[in-house]
Design a protein around this nucleic acid. Structure first.
Length: 762
DNA sequence: TTTGAGCTAGTCTTG
DNA sequence: CTAGCTCAAA
C-alpha cells in the first residue's frame, strides 16, 4: 500500500492533491512513475475511490505495462479494476463498443503503416496524382497531421484557399478516408479522432465515460497532440479531476504532432489548477545535472526548473573530438573496454546514444572488431515487418478472405504470375459487383474482362485458399501458419527476401515468434478470433533489436533475459529511443553542428526547431547516471561526401568546470588503435587552467573555415561538389563560421556554411 | 510478368 | 554511400 513517507515533499503533494486539475512538472529522473502509482494507490486505499473510476493513460505499451505491474504491487484491493491503457488502446476499446454510431462495423480492422502506404498508392493512382511531384509519404504525413488537429477532409478543403498543394491534399485526404471506411478500417490517428467525434456527437456516451473515469491521470503529457488533448478535455470535463504529468523540457516529438503548448498552457486552460514541480533527481550525479540544466537554460519557451541531487558531484564529463567517424567509434569501443577491464562498469551498463540511425554502422563495426557484444535497438516493429504482414494477411485470407487489402497483398507473394495489372482488374470487378477479390478469383474469374492467362493463376490461388480453409477446421493457428508456408511456398519468398544466411535465419525467427504469439493467444483466450488477435497485436509496438550474433530478440524481455543482457551487451540506440531509460555509463556521439543539432534546425527560420533539438540534448544528457562521455569527429562521410563539422554548440553550452579533458586510463590491449591525440595532452595533470586550454584547443581544432581562411570573396566564381559553378553573392560572418550565399548557374541561390560547403574558387 | 539496372533522396518515430 | 523504388528489357 502507499506509504507517503517514502516520498519527498513535492511528491507527497502531487499524491495528496486528488481533487481538481493538477499539473505535475516532473523533471528527468524525478520519480514521476512513483508519484503516479502512489497516487493511484492513495486514491483507492485512502480516499475510498473505486478502482474502476481511475484511469491512467500512457503513450507506449511499455509504459502502460510498467504502470500496470507497479499499481498491482501497490494497490491493496481491486488493482486490476484500474484502467491502465495507452491512448490508442483506450480509444480502440471505446470505438469497438460504439462503432455503429459512427457508421463503422464493430468488426473494423486497424490500418497500420504498411496498409496506409498501400491505400495511398491506390488513391494516388485513382486520382492520377503525379507522385513525382507529390510523394505518397508526404500525403500520409499531411493527413496524419490533419487528423491530429481534428481536421476533416472538408475542413482541409475549406482552408486550402486555392493553394495547389493544400487542394491536392484535401482531395487525397477525402478519397483516402472513403477507402478506409469502405474497407471498414481505421488508421491509428482515426482511433483518437473518431473517439473525439463520437464524444462530441453522442452526449450520453460521453457522459457514461465521464462517470466511469472520475479520476484521470495522463503520463508524458508534453507529448500529447491536439486530438489527445481534446479527448482528455472531454473525458475530464464533468469531474475535472485531471492530473497530468510531464516535462516540457522533454518534449521531443513535435515532428509527429505533439503540441508543447498543451503543457505550457495547462494553467490557462485550468485556472484553478495546482502546479507541483519535481526537481529532485534520483538518477544522476550533480555534474551531469548541472550540464543538463546549463544546456536547457538556453531555451526561451519553458517552465523554469532546475534539477538537483543529494548524491554529490561525481565525475566530470568527458569530451573528445576525434578525426573521423570510425576513430570516434573505436575511441568509444576502447573506452568501454577499459571501463569494463577496470571493473567499474559492465558492458550492459554502457549505452551509445546517437542522433540518427545511419551513425550506428561505425559502432557496430568497432564492436565487432573488438569482440564486444552489442544490441542495436531498431525502430522496426515486429507487426510492421514484411514477413509478419505477409503471413498474417495469408491467415486472414484463408480464414475469411473478406479484406481485399490483405488478399491483394499476398495474392502474388511469392510471384505466381498475377501481376499488378491483373490484380487491378480483379479489384475493379470485385468492387463493381460487391464481392471480395477472393470470391471473384474463386467463382467469377472467367467473367473478369481481359484477364488472359492470369485468370487460371488466380483461380488456382483461390482454390488453394479454399482447400486449406476446409482442412484448417481442426488446426490450431500455428498449424495453419505452417500449412500456409508449405501450401503457398512462402519459403520461396523468404529465400528471395533474404540476401544473406543471417537474414534468412532472422526471417525464420520471425516465423517462430509469430507461432509463439498465436499459441499463447489461442491458449489464453476463451473464444479465439483472428480479427481480435490482429487488433490486439496491431497496437502492440514491440521493437526489435539485432545483435552481433544475428539473433533477434524483442525489446521487452523476461527478467532473466534482461539480466543477462544487462551484463553482456552494450546498447546502441537513437536519443529518441533512449527517452525514459537510464544507463550508468553513457556516450553521446556525433556531437557536431549539422548532425546534432541537425541540419534542418541549424538552417531553420523557426527558433522552435533549435529548441526542440536542445530538448533532445537535455533528454540525452539526463540518461546518464554516473559517467557521461561526449564525442565528435572532425569529418565524416554523409550522403557519400566527406563533411567537415564544428563541435556541437550544445557542448559549448556546458560550463567548462564540468568538463574533463583527461584521457581515459586505457590498458593497451593490442587493439591496434591509437587515438590521434598529441602526447602532451595525456601528460598534463588535471588542473583547471590546463583543462581549459586543452578544451580551447579542442574547440579551435574544430574550426574549419575561420576568419581569413576563405579563398574566395564576394562576386568570385566558385565550384561546389554537387551544385556546380556559381557566383558568390554574400559572405556573412555567422560567428562560428561564414555563411555564404551563392547563386549557382544550374540551381539558383543557396545559402550554406563555408565549413560544410567546401567551395573552391575557379 | 519478372527481374535487375539505374535513379533518387536522405532526422527523429508511438500506436 | 546505400536502401528503396521506378522503369526498361527479356
Amino acid at each position: 500500500m502507499s506509504d507517503l513517507r517514502n516520498l519527498n515533499k513535492p511528491q507527497q503533494q502531487a499524491v495528496e492533491v486528488t481533487e481538481g486539475p493538477l499539473l505535475v512538472l516532473a523533471g528527468a529522473g524525478s520519480g514521476k512513475t512513483r508519484v503516479l502509482t502512489h497516487r493511484a494507490a492513495y486514491l483507492i486505499d485512502e480516499k475510498g475511490v473505486k478502482p474502476w473510476n481511475v484511469l491512467c493513460i500512457t503513450f507506449t505499451n511499455k509504459a502502460a505495462r510498467e504502470m500496470r505491474t507497479r499499481i498491482n504491487d501497490m494497490v491493496e484491493t481491486g488493482a486490476n479494476e484500474v484502467t491502465v491503457s495507452t491512448f490508442h488502446s483506450l480509444c480502440l476499446r471505446i470505438l469497438f463498443k460504439h462503432a455503429q454510431l459512427l457508421g463503422y462495423d464493430p468488426r473494423f480492422e486497424i490500418c497500420d503503416t504498411a496498409d496506409q502506404k498501400a491505400v495511398m498508392k491506390q488513391v494516388c493512382k485513382d486520382l492520377e496524382v503525379d507522385t513525382k511531384r507529390f510523394k505518397e509519404r508526404t500525403f500520409i504525413n499531411a493527413i496524419s497531421n490533419a487528423k491530429n488537429e481534428l481536421k476533416s477532409p472538408a475542413d482541409y478543403a475549406h482552408e486550402a484557399f486555392g493553394d495547389e498543394w493544400y487542394e491536392q491534399v484535401a482531395k487525397v485526404y477525402d478519397r483516402y478516408q472513403r477507402v478506409l471506411k469502405a474497407s471498414n478500417t481505421m488508421d491509428f490517428d482515426d482511433l483518437i479522432m473518431q473517439t473525439v467525434n463520437l464524444f462530441k456527437r453522442e452526449k450520453e456516451v460521453l457522459e457514461g465515460y465521464q462517470d466511469r473515469f472520475r479520476y484521470i491521470m495522463v503520463d508524458e503529457y508534453q507529448d500529447t497532440n491536439t486530438a489527445q488533448f481534446e479527448l482528455i478535455k472531454l473525458l475530464s470535463a464533468k469531474y475535472r479531476n485531471l492530473c497530468v504529468v510531464g516535462d516540457d523540457d522533454q518534449s521531443i516529438y513535435r515532428f509527429r504532432g505533439a503540441n508543447i503548448r498543451n503543457i505550457l498552457d495547462f494553467e490557462k486552460f485550468y485556472p484553478e489548477a495546482v502546479t507541483v514541480r519535481l526537481e529532485q533527481n534520483y538518477r544522476s550525479t550533480q555534474n551531469i545535472l548541472d550540464a543538463a540544466n546549463a544546456v536547457i537554460a538556453n531555451n526561451e519557451g519553458r517552465k523554469v526548473k532546475s534539477l538537483w541531487t543529494s548524491e554529490g558531484e561525481g565525475d566530470r564529463l568527458n569530451f573528445r573530438q576525434l578525426e573521423s567517424a570510425s576513430d570516434e567509434a573505436m575511441f568509444v569501443a576502447e573506452d568501454i573496454r577499459a571501463q569494463v577491464k577496470a571493473g567499474r562498469f559492465k558492458y550492459g551498463d554502457c549505452a551509445i546514444l546517437m542522433r540518427t540511425n545511419v551513425q550506428s554502422k561505425e559502432f557496430e563495426d568497432a564492436f565487432r572488431v573488438m569482440g564486444i557484444d552489442y544490441d542495436l535497438v531498431k525502430g522496426l516493429r515486429f507487426w510492421d515487418t514484411k514477413i509478419i504482414k505477409d503471413l498474417t494477411s495469408y491467415m486472414m485470407t484463408v480464414a475469411s478472405g473478406m479484406n481485399d487489402m490483405r488478399t491483394a497483398r499476398i495474392i502474388n507473394v511469392p510471384a505466381r504470375g498475377i501481376g499488378a495489372a491483373g490484380i487491378e482488374k480483379i479489384r475493379a470487378y470485385a468492387t463493381l459487383h460487391g464481392l471480395s477479390m477472393l470470391q471473384v478469383c474463386h467463382d467469377h474469374v472467367d467473367e473478369v474482362p481481359s484477364l488472359g492467362r492470369t485468370a487460371k493463376k488466380a483461380k488456382e490461388f483461390a482454390d488453394m485458399v479454399y482447400s486449406l480453409r476446409e482442412r484448417s477446421a481442426d488446426m490450431s493457428y500455428s498449424q495453419l501458419l505452417t500449412s500456409i508456408i508449405m501450401d503457398f511456398e512462402y519459403d520461396k519468398q523468404m529465400d528471395a527476401d533474404a540476401d544473406t544466411p543471417e537474414k534468412y535465419n532472422e526471417l525464420k525467427d520471425y516465423v517462430d515468434k509469430l507461432k509463439e504469439a498465436l499459441d499463447v493467444y489461442e491458449e489464453s483466450t476463451p473464444e479465439p478470433d483472428l480479427v481480435d488477435f490482429m487488433r490486439q497485436n496491431g497496437l502492440e509496438g514491440n521493437n526489435l533489436s539485432s545483435s552481433a550474433g544475428g539473433a533477434v530478440i524483442q525489446r521487452e524481455l523476461t527478467p532473466e533475459e534482461e539480466e543477462e543482457q544487462r551484463e553482456k551487451k552494450v546498447l546502441i540506440m537513437t536519443m529518441h529511443n533512449a527517452k525514459g531509460l537510464e544507463f550508468p555509463n553513457v556516450y553521446l556521439v556525433g556531437m557536431e553542428d549539422g548532425l546534432f543539432p541537425g541540419f534542418a534546425s541549424v538552417f531553420s527560420e523557426d527558433e522552435e526547431d533549435m529548441e526542440e533539438e536542445r530538448r533532445l540534448c537535455y533528454v540525452a544528457i539526463t540518461r546518464a547516471k554516473e559517467r557521461l562521455t561526449m564525442v565528435c569527429a572532425k569529418h565524416r562521410m554523409i550522403n557519400g561526401e566527406t563533411r567537415y563539422s564544428k563541435t556541437s554548440r550544445f557542448i559549448k553550452e556546458i560550463p567548462i568546470r564540468l568538463m574533463d579533458m583527461k584521457l581515459p586510463d586505457r590498458e593497451r590491449g593490442g587493439g591496434g588503435f591509437e587515438p590521434e591525440v598529441p602526447a602532451k595532452v595525456k601528460a598534463i595533470p588535471r588542473r583547471s587552467e590546463n583543462v581549459y586550454s586543452n578544451y580551447a584547443k579542442a574547440m579551435k581544432g574544430s574550426q574549419i573555415g575561420v576568419r581569413g581562411e576563405l579563398s574566395y570573396g564576394v562576386s568570385d566564381r566558385v565550384r561546389h561538389v554537387k551544385f556546380g559553378e556559381g557566383t558568390v553573392l554574400e559572405i556573412k560572418n555567422g560567428g562560428r563560421d561564414y555563411e555564404v550565399t551563392v547563386e549557382f548557374d544550374s540551381c539558383g541561390v543557396k545559402r550554406m556554411f563555408a565549413g560544410f560547403a567546401k567551395l573552391v574558387k575557379v
